[in-house]
């Protein structure tokens, strides 16, 4: 269990940022995984009073507050319309409705969990991470960086894309054995593989007119690992299948 000495309900993002510059501080978002990690910190910084829980739609994008819950993403009607229900489909297997009612999108993105269904989908959609100090950074880049002391305020997703998610799980609410997210934009189709079990990566970009051999080739050059849930060999075997399914789904959308 995580241990803190002080718990600060930040009043402003500036205050939160200032407090977070100490190594002995930690940002509390949904407190789902953080609670379990056995971390010991002097100060926990709570962002829930900062109004970062809104989903805003602009002409060309959705700007999603980092404290927006997964449940809100899943049930937001504008997102649902814009992306053909992919958020609901991608997030529904995550533990349970109560879990998703407090788990946040910012927490998922910051943590860069290998098993994250959220990151896989956002990577496919080429989301931008908006950081308080640094400003906008592509998730593709952010995802590969080490944990830093900046604070995610928003996630930005460009409209006009179609996406699909396919996964294999041990049981319905488990974290995935392998997840593949695909998104189609003007640049073609992007394929993301997550739960390899390492951090999700863009396995292929700008794919068009792909055949099964293409997916097998992509799987062949992607690194997979073993864990409790499956071997690397199994993951490599099913990766082309999931890619083909996700690819087909988002092409047909």
């Amino acid at each position: 269990m995580a241990k803190y000495r002080n718990y600060v309900m930040a009043k402003t993002i500036e205050e939160a940022y200032a407090l977070n510059q100490k190594k002995s501080s930690v940002i509390v978002a949904g407190n789902m995984w953080l609670r379990m990690c056995g971390l010991k910190k002097q100060t926990a910084i709570d962002l829930s009073l900062l109004g970062l829980d809104k989903i805003e739609e602009t002409e060309d994008a959705f700007v999603i507050g980092s404290m927006t819950t997964l449940r809100a993403l899943e049930t937001d009607s504008a997102l649902d319309q814009a992306f053909g229900g992919v958020f609901a489909r991608a997030l529904a297997p995550i533990v349970g409705t109560q879990f998703r009612a407090t788990a946040t999108v910012g927490g998922s993105v910051y943590s860069r969990f290998g098993f994250s269904d959220v990151s896989a989908l956002l990577l496919a959609l080429d989301a931008e991470v908006i950081l308080f100090k640094r400003g906008a950074v592509k998730l593709t880049r952010y995802q590969q960086e080490p944990w830093d002391r900046d604070i995610i305020t928003h996630i930005r997703i460009a409209k006009g894309q179609r996406a699909a998610v396919e996964s294999v799980r041990v049981s319905g609410t488990d974290i995935p054995v392998l997840v593949c997210a695909a998104a189609r934009s003007e640049a073609g189709i992007r394929l993301v593989l997550g739960a390899r079990p390492a951090r999700a990566i863009v396995a292929a970009d700008g794919v068009d007119g792909a055949q099964m051999e293409t997916f097998e080739h992509i799987a062949g050059r992607t690194a997979f690992g073993d864990n409790l849930r499956a071997s690397a060999a199994y993951r490599r075997r099913i990766a082309p299948v999931l890619m083909e399914r996700a690819y087909t789904a988002c092409r047909e959308e």
Partner: peptide, 16 residues
């Protein structure tokens, strides 16, 4: 034992 929680030891949920 690494199957030491309901996260790592999956008992059937309702949807299963």
């Amino acid at each position: 034992t690494v199957s030491n929680s309901f996260l790592q030891y999956k008992i059937p949920a309702r949807i299963d």
